[in-house]
C-alpha cells in the first residue's frame, strides 16, 4: 500500500506541475515555443522523478 504521506506529497507535486504548466502555456502564448516546451519538460520531470524515487526506490 502507498502510505498517506506519499499521497499528500504526490498531490503537492501535481499542484506544482499544474502551476508550472500554466506558466508554460502563458509563455507559449507569448510565442516563445522553445521556452514553453522546456517548461513543460521541467514540469514533467518534476512529477515523474520524485514519484519514481518515492515508489520504486528505497531511499
Amino acid at each position: 500500500m502507498i502510505p498517506v504521506e506519499y499521497i499528500v506529497l504526490i498531490a503537492f507535486l501535481l499542484c506544482v506541475a499544474f502551476y508550472t504548466v500554466s506558466y508554460g502555456i502563458w509563455i507559449w502564448k507569448k510565442r516563445n515555443r522553445l521556452g514553453a516546451v522546456m517548461i513543460f519538460l521541467v514540469a514533467i520531470i518534476a512529477v515523474i522523478l520524485p514519484i519514481y524515487i518515492l515508489i520504486f526506490r528505497e531511499v
Binding site: 499542484c15 502551476y19 506558466y23 502563458w26
Partner: peptide, 9 residues
C-alpha cells in the same frame, strides 16, 4: 485556489 494554481503575470 485558482490564484494559487494558475500563473499570473
Amino acid at each position: 485556489i485558482k490564484n494559487l494554481l494558475f500563473f499570473h503575470e
